[in-house]
Nucleic acid binder design. Structure first.
Lengths: 141, 141
DNA sequence: TGCTATTAGTTAGCTCTACTAATCAATAGT
DNA sequence: ACTATTGATTAGTAGAGCTAACTAATAGCA
């Protein structure tokens, strides 16, 4: 029905605003990482999803291949990522995070999560349960 | 207690991932806006919070004044925003959204919200209630 | 009043992030 | 073997971020 559609739109709007607000809040922690947002985001994918080719990573990050190639340049120069040419198809370039890269990414994520956790002190146990369940639902989106 | 702290950290992590996922999902709609993310975000603040000076907007957007001055250049050139010098303090430059700017921003936001609302069709009424309450809580962050 | 310090914004110059177009190398398909 | 396709890079442009340096206006005060 139309009213259910309207309800979904209202909730979508609220979730959208909330997500913006939340990320805006933790973003200030990223200055300490010393690398830009695109490099940080690409590194995050490599850490949590494992090795990817340039094309795969570009698709995941919603950028074009040349952009990801440049981002990889920066990460390689900082020794956070290594380029390997794949054995089966030598056109493909596999990107693998280094130990330093993993360390830098995890430290950055920890700062973000810690900053957010601090804000969560304002909530009751029941409210936290609601937030937890909502997060689980959003994962299903 | 330490376990409550750990719980908050776990939930913070889940919310953080969820917010990233959600915004990544709707971001693809922004290509249709024809302006970049920084201009879009600044315009959004002007639409929903009203006129701001360059400095105020820079603080809200977590960028430095020169960056916001450049963003304003782009918005003014596209006639989405107008610069006025304030009457009381002629150093201040007030930025005001134009009718076109408002229209462009609202259309873009509508695309985002619509895309998200579409995904919410997968949820039950009860799950939507959980999401709605969570969004309300996040506003309090 | 006039001198100085502070504040708001812009300009200049750098880096990073994004795009398209063009190119190179390797693979796949006749 | 020739051609088409695919994956990545290079070149060139625009947008978005920074610091440093500058201009203009206001504020403070002797």
């Amino acid at each position: 029905m139309s009213s259910e559609q309207a309800r979904r739109a209202t909730i979508a709007d609220a979730l959208h605003s909330g997500a913006i607000k939340l990320l805006r809040m933790v973003r200030s922690e990223d200055a300490a990482a010393g690398i830009g947002p695109a490099q940080l985001s690409a590194l995050s994918v490599l850490v949590f999803m494992g090795e990817k080719t340039v094309g795969e990573l570009a698709a995941l990050e919603q950028v074009r291949a040349p952009t990801m190639s440049r981002i990889a340049d920066g990460l390689v120069e900082r020794q956070l990522v290594q380029r390997h040419s794949a054995t089966t198809d030598r056109r493909r370039v596999r990107l693998a995070v280094t130990a330093e890269g993993r360390k830098l990414l995890l430290a950055g994520k920890d700062r973000r999560v810690r900053a957010l956790a601090k804000r969560l002190e304002a909530f009751t146990a029941g409210e936290l349960t609601t937030l937890k369940e909502a997060a689980r639902l959003i994962e299903r989106l």
